[in-house]
Structure formats: structure tokens, C-alpha cells
Design a protein around this nucleic acid. Structure first.
Lengths: 243, 243
DNA sequence: ACCTGAACACCGTTCAAGT
DNA sequence: ACCTGAACACCGTTCAAGT
């Protein structure tokens, strides 16, 4: 993986030259000038707007009024760029203030919720997260903050790591599912509620298959149900690890 | 997503013509003849062997000694083919025998473990699972069996669905992480243990970042640790939902 | 130091045509 | 009913060359 194109993948974060040497003259040069941050920011914007499928190095270059090959002066390939873009959106996650007196479980839930929010806001980032090592500076910062939260729990040092992994694996799976349905709804031009109903109807036509997970569970909107389900399973997990 | 190429995605399973009409003459025709099942089986084999990045319609056609365009007689595009391939590997999952007298939690753990096993065995399927609706016949069969297992629990009908989703979202996240590290290890030609150690060493060079989740936790092998972590968090979740 | 043009080796897919 | 050839509209990336 990681390196759809590369056969011997290396994370950007593991390249020997830690990053392209930033040029000294970072004065207020012409606003049209290229630099790494601008490329990454534009990439994120395009990925959000057009989706990963429509995103290409060529499109990005055009958006920056530059030749595709210019980009390769700043990033070594598309995979590296995506890995950089991913870390950059991880940096958007709103970290809860660490308050020594507050309940660490509240902070953990806040971290999980913030992460879910960011992932769902950038569907392409979910796929990237599943493909790349996530060891960029922003990612490490997020992990560190999470560990600080867990450190206030009564769990053993080792259990803190296991618990943290479990929580974020759950959140990742949840966000992935959530995003998938949102995207399908968006692309078919219907609300999620409508789309789910349509799929449920279509699927119920198959003999032997009951609606199952697609069944309408109440009169609440999907969004409300999703929020509630997210919190409930998170509570189960936290309750279980403390039992 | 779903439809990297298509802008108005529809699952294979939602196409109005439910499947291409199977030809009546399914006699023992020449072994070299094309058909849908053979195409799907070959696709799965190639995806496993070469990885999704190397897999292409053209490669698949070559493997089948046929022109790329022949494939489009049987599947309408690459996305549909991947969706079919995904459902086909879901069909490989070894479902636990439903035993009315056995503990349903044991069956649930068996389902989760079997699913994890299948996902990790087919890394490309993980990405597909995150991208497509998973409503093919095999997928529905798996879901149905899962619901039968949950039906033996003391949970309310609605909680059964919430719990099932949570469990499989966790397993999906776990398998995604697991597969990612396995793939990186494989591609760099090292064991996972070696690769993790290498990354941990590299990352620890960054100021302010402690090893964190990459820290070596014991003398056990990664495989043993992964298995234990997987079971523990699953137990937490199950314990939590019953509390 | 930074950017470009031309080219290479690929993609998925359409469409008209063959048998 | 099934398969093909040629073509279209793309990709990411290399490499030598420009300034």
C-alpha cells in the first residue's frame, strides 16, 4: 500500500532529508509564489471540493497557475503530497483543553468526537488514513495529547495504549461508515435518510434478506441516531475498560 | 466515493437489471470461455497477488487471454467489478455454527475474528469495504447471521443493531491498522516487528514526540500482542454493552 | 534555485465493427 | 451473443533543458 505507484514505499516522514530545506528568503515575496505550505493548502481545498477521484497533480498545478512538473520541486510524488495533506487536516482537530480537575473520560470523548468530525469533513482523509503511516507532526501531537488524557485514568500504562488504540479504531470505523453513506447521499443528490430508505427498499426485494442494519429505527433523523449510536458505543467501550 | 470514475454512483447491487442474464447454455463449455464468476475469481486472485495498485482491467484481461474490452460485456465498469470481488471474499468468511445452547458472545467473537481474518487476508478488500455499500448477497448473509447471533443476547432489538455496528466498526478499524503495518512491512521486506522498531527509532528523533503507540511493550511478538489487544477491546465492548 | 516542454508508459472506457 | 481494434481523454512521472 502507501505508494499506489511506488513499489518500495517510504513515508514522507521517514525520508532521510527531513524536509526540503526551506529557503531563507521567506520574506513577503510575491503572493503568487509557490511554496510547500501553499501547495498543501491548495491540495486540501481541492480534495475537499472535488473529491479524491477528481484530484490530480495536473489539476492542482492548474489551480496554482503552474506547470505540473513544478510541484515535483516541492514534493517528491503524489503519495507524499497526500500524506502531507493528511497530516495538515489532522492539525485542524480541536484538541480539548487538558484540565487536571475534569473527568478524563470527558476529554477522551471530546477527542474522539473531534476526530470523527474532522474525518467526516474530509472524506478523502479517511482513505489516506487507512493507507499511510500516520506519524506526521500533527498526528504525533494528537497522539501525545490523547496519551496525556489517558494518563489521568486508573488504567495501567500498557492498558492505556490498548484502550487508546481501541477507541480510535472504533472511531475510524464509525467515521468510515458514516462518511460512506453521506457521500453516496450527496452524489445521488438525496439526503442520507432518503438514500438509506431507497437502498433498504431495494434490498428488501431480495428473498431471505431482511432490512437489518438499514431498518428505520425510529422517527428520529439519521443524524440524531448516528450521534447517539456513536456516543453509546463509546460509552460501552469506556465502561468495559474500567470494569 | 464509490465510483472513483463515475460521478453518479450506483452500486452494482442497485442496478435495475439485477444481473446480466445468465446464458441458458451453461453446459460444460470450453474451459477457456469467459463468464462472470471466472472474471471475478481471477480478479480476486490478481488483487491478492499484485495488490490493488497494480491491478488493472488491462492486466486482468491479459490474464484471461482476452481483450480488455471483452470484460465490459460482463461487468459495466471497474467499480462494479471491485464491488463484486469484495462480496465474493465476504463469502469466504467462515461463519460459526449457530448453536442455541452456546454462549452468543462466543459466536460474536468468532464472527468478529473471522471477519478480521478475511479482511487482513485481502488488503484491497479493506479499501473497497470503506468505499462501497456492502449489500451484496454474501454481505447480507453475513449480516443476517450476525443478527441471529445478537438475537440470542439480552439486548433490546434496537441495541442489538447498535452493538453489532459498533463491533464491526471496531473490527474494521483494527483490521485496517493491522493490515497497514503488515503491508508496509511486506513492502519494505522486513518483518512487522523490525519495521515498527525502525519507525519508532526514526520518530523518536523528533523532539517532543515520545514513542507512544509504537513503543515496544514487551518481549512478545507483535502478532501475539495484536491478537491479545484485539480480544481485549472486543471483551471491553461486549462487557460494556451488557452493563 | 526554481520552473518548463516534450515525452514515456500507462490508465478506464466509448464506439463502431466484426463473427 | 460475444469479442475486437482503434481511438479518446486522461493519468503520474522522468529527463533534459531553460532562466
Amino acid at each position: 500500500m502507501a505508494g499506489k505507484r511506488d513499489s518500495h514505499p517510504r513515508s514522507v516522514w521517514l525520508t532521510s532529508k527531513p524536509a526540503r530545506k526551506r529557503r531563507e528568503s521567506e520574506s513577503a515575496a510575491g503572493a503568487g509564489n509557490l511554496d510547500r505550505e501553499k501547495i498543501i493548502a491548495t491540495a486540501v481545498r481541492l480534495l475537499d471540493a472535488k473529491g479524491e477521484a477528481q484530484f490530480s497533480m495536473r489539476l492542482l498545478a492548474a489551480e496554482l497557475n503552474v506547470t505540473p512538473m513544478s510541484l515535483y520541486w516541492y514534493v517528491s510524488n503524489k503519495d507524499d503530497l497526500l500524506e502531507l495533506a493528511l497530516d495538515s487536516v489532522i492539525g485542524e482537530i480541536r484538541l480539548p483543553k487538558i484540565n487536571v480537575r475534569s473527568d478524563w473520560r470527558k476529554d477522551l470523548r471530546a477527542l474522539a468526537g473531534a476526530w470523527r468530525h474532522t474525518l467526516v469533513a474530509h472524506p478523502w482523509a479517511i482513505r489516506c488514513y487507512g493507507e499511510y503511516l500516520n506519524i506526521g507532526p500533527q498526528s504525533m501531537g494528537f497522539t501525545q495529547r490523547s496519551q496525556e488524557v489517558m494518563a489521568r485514568s486508573s488504567l495501567s500504562k500498557e492498558d492505556q495504549l490498548v484502550a487508546l488504540s481501541a477507541v480510535f479504531q472504533y472511531v475510524y470505523g464509525f467515521a468510515s461508515t458514516e462518511s460512506r453513506w453521506l457521500e453516496y447521499g450527496r452524489k445521488t443528490g438525496s439526503t442520507v435518510d432518503e438514500f438509506v430508505a431507497e437502498v433498504a427498499a431495494s434490498v428488501s426485494g431480495i428473498p431471505g434478506a431482511q432490512g437489518g442494519l438499514l431498518e428505520r429505527r425510529s422517527t428520529q433523523t439519521m443524524k440524531e441516531l448516528r450521534d447517539r449510536d456513536f456516543d453509546r458505543a463509546l460509552d460501552w467501550l469506556i465502561a468495559g475498560m474500567l470494569a
